[in-house]
């Protein structure tokens, strides 16, 4: 465990908590893509099936359980408790455009042709595109609440820190996981445009709005 990895995990956890607290305090999930949140719940579910088969560390187990719980609570807030406040009209990204290619690719390009391994691969590919419904929603409405942009910032920061973690691991342990690295780099690229807007607008006290 290196410093990039731990900071990456903290950043990921912070992003998830920021989103949950925002929904809870405002009693509203306006501007949040429920579809992205469903995809993240699916990502954690398919990736963390190894909770039942492999023990890595207490840290690993606890974090996986927290991520799973938070993901399901978020989905419940959007589609259950605060359903009336959700922006389903603007959350119009077609999930099959992501799920079909991701499923196909996970069968074609994986480490082992076993159920657990294919599901793990599916989760890695799916995570790399899971934020797209959220970014699509922002581009459609042309704006995002500042707190939503903080959520996206920490989610993007987590991805960037994981890349630093992989560079570190490659040099110190001679370890790299090609599937994770390629998908991780693709995923981080999706955040670049957003990072630019975050730095030039949100950090200067302006609301994120698109021209």
């Amino acid at each position: 465990m290196n410093v990039f990895r731990i900071l990456g995990d903290i950043s990921h956890l912070l992003a998830i908590i920021i989103l949950l607290v925002k929904i809870w305090k405002s009693k509203s999930c306006a501007g949040i893509s429920g579809k992205s949140q469903i995809l993240f719940a699916l990502v954690f579910t398919t990736r963390y099936l190894d909770l039942f088969t492999t023990f890595i560390s207490i840290y690993n187990t606890v974090m996986k359980v927290i991520f799973l719980l938070c993901a399901y609570i978020t989905v419940y807030m959007i589609y259950g408790k605060f359903r009336k406040t959700s922006d389903s009209e603007n959350d119009s990204f077609r999930l099959e455009f992501l799920l079909v290619p991701v499923t196909g690719l996970s069968f074609l390009e994986n480490h082992n042709f076993t159920a657990l391994e294919i599901l793990w691969t599916f989760s890695i590919y799916l995570e790399s595109v899971a934020i797209l419904p959220q970014l699509f929603m922002i581009s459609k409405t042309g704006e995002a609440e500042t707190i939503t942009t903080h959520y996206l910032f920490f989610l993007g920061l987590y991805r960037a820190l994981y890349i630093a973690n992989w560079i570190w691991r490659y040099h110190t342990e001679n370890f790299y996981d090609q599937i994770a690295v390629v998908s991780g780099v693709v995923q981080t690229i999706f955040y670049c445009d957003f990072f630019y807007l975050y730095v030039t607008k949100v950090l200067k006290g302006k609301k994120l709005s698109l021209p």
Binding site: R47, I56, S57, N60, N165, D177
Partner: peptide, 10 residues
């Protein structure tokens, strides 16, 4: 080379 180890990352 791409050595496959258990997935220890989150």
């Amino acid at each position: 080379h791409a050595l496959h180890v258990p997935h220890d990352e989150l």
